[in-house]
Design a protein around this nucleic acid. Structure first.
Lengths: 218, 218
DNA sequence: TAGATTGTTAATCGATTAACAATC
DNA sequence: TAGATTGTTAATCGATTAACAATC
């Protein structure tokens, strides 16, 4: 199956579908149409149907999609029907926030190890995980079969941490640092740098703001 | 000028350009070509030139782009040549992390007020800001001319907070909660929900993982 | 049966890339 | 002048949307 290359745009919509479907499930709604999903998500129903059809025939003509069944299918597509272990480097505020987040998530993604480069952080406790030194990274990743690395260190340390993740054989990296990281093709990197979202948001503000235009250049 | 509607894809690349340019500036590099930027960012040079050309003629034929000048121009485009004030609701770990982040940023975006719905958080201190009750939101937003709202509350409270932001006239919202929020057309909403990035990252992992395939449905 | 809705093909739309004249 | 690189037009590519037969 899964023959044709699926576009990134499609893959990025799957977690969104999953989110709405989970909400529907909680509200005990059993069936949903692409039409209804489209309204909720501001997406074209044809697009939703097409996205899902890349992976199989999940719906029933004249009826729609069974919510629980579709949840299960999307989870399978995203490989969430197994527990995926995650290591986090950078035990600062953000790292702590993510670890906490973790325990509420039932998505079978689990942060199971936390590391930091700074000696004073080593040994401290975060959400029942003890912060370990980077020297332990290789051993722990191998032992726990960790497949994803999260980077929550300052920008200037990010590439260095990424390199270490790559060396120890992590398959995917989620980077929170506001830096452009170089990784080999076989490692997938996603950026969760919120400053990008914040800056692009600024573009869409109305123009009224008191622009004091202090541009030195011309 | 700025006549044609600029596509979202273009706007989302601007902060990335800004990031590389800032790095180049720190390294005291004065001029850069679209070719060089392309290599750094894994983007087609023609695309970079085209993106920038939507906003003006910033480069010099045969030479390239002056780094400092281009930084200034992109900052103008993103409206960062003014201080944009931001309010944050949700004084949890993530909220605290963002406030801290804040002080290092020189992007003229500033979190100037923090709120929380829970009484026990009110009055506590976050990075020199006192957490205020939601009842103060309207007054503070008006007084400080706050234009962007950040949501760092749990998913089930997010829509409620968004509604309050909308009521008090915020122009843009950055949502960190893993929830789909409904906002009117005139309010811009960007999502910084990292679970989406994490789940789509899982899709790209290699297949090897021990899939115990415990799917109950068929 | 009539109404609803899927899966899918074809049409449209938009974004990326190639190519090149202009020019530093 | 020769080499480099922009800004921009035209060509290509890919993603979204419309339309509809199949079918519940």
């Amino acid at each position: 199956m899964k023959s044709a290359k699926i576009s990134e745009a499609v893959v990025r919509r799957l977690p969104i579908y999953l989110q709405v479907l989970n909400e529907l499930h909680i509200r005990e709604i059993q069936t949903v149409s692409s039409q209804e999903l489209g309204v909720k998500l501001d997406l074209n129903p044809a697009q939703i149907r097409k996205d899902l059809a890349y992976f199989g025939e999940f719906g029933r003509k004249g009826i729609g999609y069974d919510v629980l069944y579709l949840i299960e299918k999307i989870r399978q597509i995203l490989k969430l029907n197994q527990t995926i272990k995650v290591a986090l480097v950078g035990a600062g505020n953000l790292g702590r926030a993510l670890c906490n987040y973790n325990k509420y998530s039932k998505d079978n993604m689990q942060i199971t190890a936390v590391f930091d480069v700074h000696p004073e952080k080593i040994g401290t406790d975060i959400n029942n995980l003890v912060v370990q030194p980077m020297s332990e990274l290789e051993k722990v990743v191998a032992e726990q079969k960790i497949r994803i690395g999260i980077i929550t260190v300052p920008a200037h340390e990010a590439q260095n941490v990424a390199n270490q993740f790559i060396t120890v054989g992590v398959e995917g990296i989620l980077n929170f640092a506001p830096a452009i990281l170089r990784v080999p093709d076989e490692v997938r990197i996603h950026n969760a740098d919120f400053t990008r979202e914040l800056l692009s948001l600024a573009y869409y503000l109305n123009h009224e703001g008191d622009v004091s235009d202090d541009s030195a250049v011309d």
